[in-house]
Nucleic acid binder design. Sequence first.
DNA 1: GATGAATGAGCATTCATTCAT
DNA 2: AATGAATGAATGCTCATTCAT
Lengths: 186, 186, 186, 186
Amino acid sequence: MADGRPLRADARRNRERLLSVARAAFAGEGLSVPLDEIARRAGVGPGTLYRHFPTKESLFEAIVHDRLRQILHDARARGTSTDPGEALFGFIDGLVAEARLKQDLIDALASAGVDVSPSMAVTGAGIRDAIGDLLDRAQRSDAVRPDVTIDDMMALLSGLLFALRPQSRYKADAGRLLAVLRAGLR
Amino acid sequence: MADGRPLRADARRNRERLLSVARAAFAGEGLSVPLDEIARRAGVGPGTLYRHFPTKESLFEAIVHDRLRQILHDARARGTSTDPGEALFGFIDGLVAEARLKQDLIDALASAGVDVSPSMAVTGAGIRDAIGDLLDRAQRSDAVRPDVTIDDMMALLSGLLFALRPQSRYKADAGRLLAVLRAGLR
Amino acid sequence: MADGRPLRADARRNRERLLSVARAAFAGEGLSVPLDEIARRAGVGPGTLYRHFPTKESLFEAIVHDRLRQILHDARARGTSTDPGEALFGFIDGLVAEARLKQDLIDALASAGVDVSPSMAVTGAGIRDAIGDLLDRAQRSDAVRPDVTIDDMMALLSGLLFALRPQSRYKADAGRLLAVLRAGLR
Amino acid sequence: MADGRPLRADARRNRERLLSVARAAFAGEGLSVPLDEIARRAGVGPGTLYRHFPTKESLFEAIVHDRLRQILHDARARGTSTDPGEALFGFIDGLVAEARLKQDLIDALASAGVDVSPSMAVTGAGIRDAIGDLLDRAQRSDAVRPDVTIDDMMALLSGLLFALRPQSRYKADAGRLLAVLRAGLR
DNA sequence: GATGAATGAGCATTCATTCAT
DNA sequence: AATGAATGAATGCTCATTCAT
């Protein structure tokens, strides 16, 4: 996988299917879903799953890493906006919208104590920096209260995503929660 | 345990010790800590643990149930306050403060898909009602924006507790997060 | 197992049975016999095997270590003999006799490349020293040719045990092989 | 492979490379080296390995069979010598010398319980007869003690090769071990 | 012929639960 | 009541073998 060689068509198909089945399974039933079950749902043998993801953790990582890269990309793209307040809040809106589509697992994984691998940590740190930049700019333009730190911000975002995860007991409205957050950060 | 017979003194001591060891273990290392390990740390045999908590889930429940009763009691007590805004926000402050002391597991359990037993559901519903009452009063006295629903509120609280749980990667300040929430709900 | 506490009677019985079943299975069918199979033959569940021997290697070790200790004891006991030649050759005779009774695994294990644990290495080194002492004395009393080293001696013994292991294709006579070795070492 | 068709040049090269890689891998790391690993080291896919050796055992056999043919040839060639003692001992010397070069696996395989296939058994029986002939002649010319049987001889040789296999813990000197054997057989 | 992806039975190990002491 | 040994289903992972490309 480390070399640049493209996967054979069937291998790529299996890899994609495994990832999407795993994402759904972990999101819906928790991280303890057996790998054999994921393989079964993807219509492959456990050995095939192993060929693509040699350990359970590597499967977690693959799922999370893809997502983290998207988030990082979006945060950076918004860093050049001329409206720093909207840059930050637009980013958060997008985060929430995507999370609902993708049934985000990031914090479920984090809360379950899955070790963040070095490469994930790098992407994660990149995200933190990019969001820190958005926060800074928003604070300098008086769009956000100045006492909030980047750690506060990250925690608020993780809490927001947690509150809105689809399996939640509570049928909260994403728009209202985002409005509360915007108002609170002003 | 279902009958009303009081436990022998040593049995009660064991039960308490098991609960506190289990709470710490689950909070610190996740829900997958083996029961044998919890028994060992509590200085009893696994058979003794079983006598008190016939299944792992019953141990989860016992931990959560105690806590839910406290929360319910506090929410109800504040329902008679003359300052409805402070009643709600004071309740939230207390919730956060207690959660940090008790290393709350409630949402970790919920997010891991642990089934809420009927008796827990009753207590949980009671809490929801009591908080709904606090919210109602606060909204009627214009201390809280009127569009927020009880589901929104519950989700916000779960997100807040999640954001502030001790194992979080982010060193957020509880006071600032509470301030953001207060401002946002106004 | 590390503390001095004696095992409960049933636990000891199971442990003994597991050891003897494992010894026979490994000797007869090689080291790849599944642990489940060993447990089954001993009439216990795999979990019980695990309780006594947490890894497959620890089971190997338990088998070999017992045997190594016996050998060490015998080699040392013969170190004080007044007839150094007979001390060495008597030791070898005993080794062969015991090996046939016990269906020796030592060299099967060694040949399979099982990593020798620290504690086994210590016992093994003790044996080497004790046999080295027997060899020294025998050489000083002119009972054994002086050019043979302790490494040669150990290799010869391992080859002898290998040649005489019960599963061998060849029906060699132990007495004649011992006679050849004695004559050759003179 | 069963038909007489000669292999294409590249196929023959692959076959040779696989055999030599496998010999080294099995000798160095034991028989449990995965076939995928051997294929990888030989620079071919596992499917190619399979085309040449349809089962793992057939690979073992191919390795051993080549070697057995050489041994048989040498034993027979020495059967016509005019010095029967030197014929036998020279054969043994050659056996040991070759074994060290080829990192012999024969007895490792035998001891691991690999079934000797019919074709190997034939060659093996031929070797036994040829060595039996060398032994007979040596005994009739009084170069070897008369009580030693062909089974004893085969066992001694297997033990000797075992004692001198490169992975042995003991750094024995081949010359001294051969000298001891010669002296013992006189 | 070669490649490497897929298969799936098999293995060591884990752990919630049961039960003899 | 407590203990801790035993149980056995389940899980992550391996690897000899097969087969589509």
